[in-house]
Design a protein around this nucleic acid. Structure first.
Lengths: 273, 273
DNA sequence: TGAGTCTACTGGTCCGACCAGTAAACCGCC
DNA sequence: GGCGGTTTACTGGTCGGACCAGTAGACTCA
């Protein structure tokens, strides 16, 4: 396929380092291409392992290694004993993106500050877009998610946290950019993993929940008014204030750089009710 | 380990759906945990396949399926014939993130507009941070990357494109947020994939390169002046102007929402030389 | 001393076998 | 005729053993 040499222009051929290609990689590549080009659509079935073994001219072990890789990449899913054919082609899902980012973050020892910064950027922009672009249905979805938060604010913190996540997700979805959605979903989940224990230990969860309610209500108002600047500024400020206790002084001043526009005086927490 | 039932509070036990656990998944989980918790560090070796087979009490095929998954996730790498032990634990790398995002984008049929939007958000913020936070060494790196762009501006478009990518990467690195770096790297690569053919066909590459030089020079100036607002605005505007021909009218007006702050009049292309 | 060979590992691939899950086809009962 | 259980023909999951091929250190001999 691709030629092994690269012209350098000085007459001498430049050779690229090669990596021995393993058989299963060829299978993965072929199946991936078929999926990406649309030859294989969501819901369609691959041949059974024994059929693929014949079609590719390799052993079943090799076919299975390829299938495991494809499955771990979220492209297919196979079910033990399913008589209706081989593995099923899966649709696009953000969970793989989230998984990849999570493992990247864990391996790189990415801390709270870096994560908050990322989240301020991504989620802030999502909120801006949501504010400027929402239709009636989307606004209704966000409002009902917010109502749910208020409803469970009296109960245990876990429920409230779930409702909070759902609210943010409804906002991100409303923004209509799936890449931003996926990234902000990751950032939220990762954040919970990092500091859930600290949060649980924090005193006075009721006050925390009430403050959170106020803040979210404030920027839901900004969204209603289609004020993107304000909504983004409020969203970033909220994140900053909320996670500020968990970062060092240096990190804090760095995060402050992202607190601009909209309301530079530092938005408070006007009561939404 | 985890109990199979969940209390509902109403006295009736609520059962969760279960998925049969495959043997290789247990191995993957154990190795992943060892890596994430630091018991296995970068550069260390896993036992050989035959050893793992004994340690886990499974067949070699099962061990290999686990290793293939771990390898595809970028956590380990194995070399045929390497006598110094089993697979080697790999360091954190953004390529896996980029791969996941790429496959997500391809599967979801994410188009140029959505990608440009994402890139405007991510890269814009990176440029802002780079402007506000750079030290001397980082500035030197960005400037030399820019010099390289200017140097190859006379040559073929591919070289220029490479230099352009290198410049953006130096800026992203300078921002010091690895999540933003990884995302912007993905967005650039994906963009190239999507429209490289169209770009190649575009008339007058010399003019294109010259304009690109001017624009990049302009926001490198803003970075020098530590003017984060201006740098971000210029970066977003550049992206918008550059890719604007490839999106529909609706998408264009949507993208315009992200063109705020800094220089609302729409920064031109002041000559950096 | 140096070049070549040997050796003891490593991963890559294959084969054949058996177990286990699934759902449709089948059959006998009421 | 309709309903249960059983059979059946697939599916994937796992196993053990085999052989080839790559690697690098140990070893040999000119």
């Amino acid at each position: 396929m691709a030629d092994e040499r690269t012209a350098t222009g000085n007459g001498r051929p430049a050779f690229r380092s090669i990596t021995p290609v393993r058989a299963y990689e060829g299978i993965v590549a072929q199946v991936e291409e078929a999926i990406f080009t649309g030859q294989l659509r969501v819901g369609q079935r691959l041949p059974s392992e024994r059929d693929m073994m014949a079609q590719f001219g390799v052993s079943r072990a090799t076919v299975r290694e390829a299938l495991r890789v494809l499955e771990s990449n979220g492209l297919i899913r196979s079910r033990h004993g399913d008589p209706s054919g081989g593995a099923e082609v899966q649709g696009s899902s953000s969970t793989r993106v989230a998984k990849a980012l999570t493992s990247f973050a864990q391996l790189g020892q990415i801390g709270v500050a870096e994560l908050v910064e990322f989240r301020m950027v991504v989620e802030g922009s999502a909120v801006r877009l949501a504010a400027e672009l929402h239709g009636e249905a989307e606004l209704a979805a966000m409002e009902s998610a917010f109502e749910e938060m208020r409803r469970v604010a009296a109960g245990p913190f876990e429920k409230f946290s779930d409702a909070d996540v759902a609210f943010h997700m409804s906002v991100a979805d409303c923004a209509g950019n799936r890449l931003l959605s996926a990234c902000s979903q990751f950032a939220r989940d990762m954040m919970l993993k990092l500091i859930s224990d600290k949060l649980r230990g924090a005193g006075n969860p009721e006050a925390l929940m009430q403050e959170s309610l106020n803040r979210h209500g404030a920027y839901l108002d900004a969204i209603r008014l289609r004020d993107g600047d304000l909504a983004e500024a409020l969203a970033r400020k909220d994140l900053f204030d909320y996670y500020e206790p968990y970062v060092t002084d240096d990190e804090r001043s760095r995060l402050r750089l992202l607190l601009t526009g909209g309301s530079p005086d530092g938005a408070g927490s006007p009561d939404p009710a």
